Amino acid sequence: MIEFKNVSKTFLLGKREVHAVRNVSLTVNEGEIFGIIGFSGAGKSTLLRLVNMLERPSTGTVMIQNIDVNALSPKELRERRRNIGMIFQNFNLFNSRTVAGNIAYPLKLGGLSKQEINQRVEELLQFVGLSDKSKDYPDQLSGGQKQRVGIARALATSPDVLICDEATSALDPETTAEILRLLKKVNQDLGITVLLITHEMHVIQSICHRVAVMENGEVIESGDVFDVFTNPQHLTTQRFIQSVQQDLPSETILKEWRSRGGKKLYRVIFKGDITNDAVLSQVTQKHQVHFNIVYGSVRELQEKLFGNLLISFEGNSEAIQKTLRDLETIVDIEEVAHHES
């Protein structure tokens, strides 16, 4: 659907070159929600602007449906942009136009009749849940309502792709959840491919199928959200995941655990169906070892269970080693040095 082939983008600031995007190769499949995450300055916004040629690549190719968008004529590019909707962090609404007027704007540019425009606006207002707000102006709306108008306007021309540039960053958590549910509805009900950028890992966790992590203009890690969350390879990815997944107890809890004689902690990761199995009980009973769950959680990612537990073992040292060897064949397990925790 969208393919970046060895794409780089360099800006000149005076005599200094700024490498905003460095040799990025990525494929966004048709019908998926693909997230790009990175800290400020990672290059994600620049990468996004290359899709609709608001910025042109310095090197490399951007393909949409097997078409090199950089090779399009101005007229062809205008037509292609009609198939790419875009929503923004700051909504970008016309304050002088009503809600209906904002949604109608791209339709008027497309030369549709008044009847066609009114019918399409009504459909979109119903889709985003704002049928009763058609005559209101943006300054009469909440942040979440403004973003719904932005989504409706982006959908007006029936695009194939919806680009979301930090679409939830200006919203409170409850409103963010509502907008994410709406974006998921856009993807599922309308079959629109969604490409979003964010610096918030919980956004990726909530709705994305796949994710790419950017740093200093490069993609440092990518893959299915479940795989990246449960087995992050890069330190930056691990930092993002830590922001939504508190997988270590506080120092106060660890201090209390040590005061009671705790020496070694083990992190045990359960993925998928095995989360529901009594693995710990079965293996420890087999070797007559006791276990204590010091800290942990079980959560759902992409309709799969993911368990993360911190455990200490009590018993004969040889029996504990046998227990660990058995567990290693079933789950992911590693020793966590308590002084580093």
Rank of each mutant, 00 (worst) to 15 (best):
E215T: 00
L109H: 11
L309R: 02
V331M: 03
L248S: 12
S8H: 08
L280D: 04
N23M: 00
H234L: 01
N70G: 15
Q246E: 13
G150N: 07
R80S: 12
F291V: 01
G307L: 03
G296N: 07
G315E: 07
L327Q: 06
K114T: 04
L180I: 01
G111R: 07
F240L: 02
A154D: 12
I87L: 10
K9Q: 14
T175V: 13
K9T: 06
H202G: 01
H338F: 13
I37R: 04
E200N: 14
K322C: 09
L254I: 14
I87T: 10
T175G: 10
L54I: 07
Y105W: 12
E200W: 00
L265W: 00
V228T: 02
L324I: 04
T98G: 15
K44C: 11
E218H: 05
Q246P: 00
Q288R: 09
A278E: 14
V149E: 07
L235G: 03
V298T: 12
E328Y: 03
V213C: 08
E303V: 00
R120K: 15
Q302R: 09
T252Y: 14
L327F: 01
I163E: 13
D136R: 13
L107Q: 02
T157Y: 13
S158R: 14
G43F: 03
S58M: 01
F91N: 09
D136N: 14
E328K: 14
R120M: 04
K322S: 12
N52P: 11
E218W: 05
A104D: 12
V121R: 06
D189M: 02
R267Y: 04
V51S: 10
L180Q: 09
N231Y: 01
V161P: 11
R16K: 15
K15Y: 01
I192T: 12
D172W: 10
E314F: 01
G272L: 02
N118R: 11
N216C: 05
V331I: 13
R267A: 06
E221Y: 05
G223D: 08
R239N: 12
I103C: 12
V128M: 13
G261V: 05
N70W: 03
R78N: 15
R239D: 14
S317A: 15
E3C: 03
Y266H: 09
S58P: 12
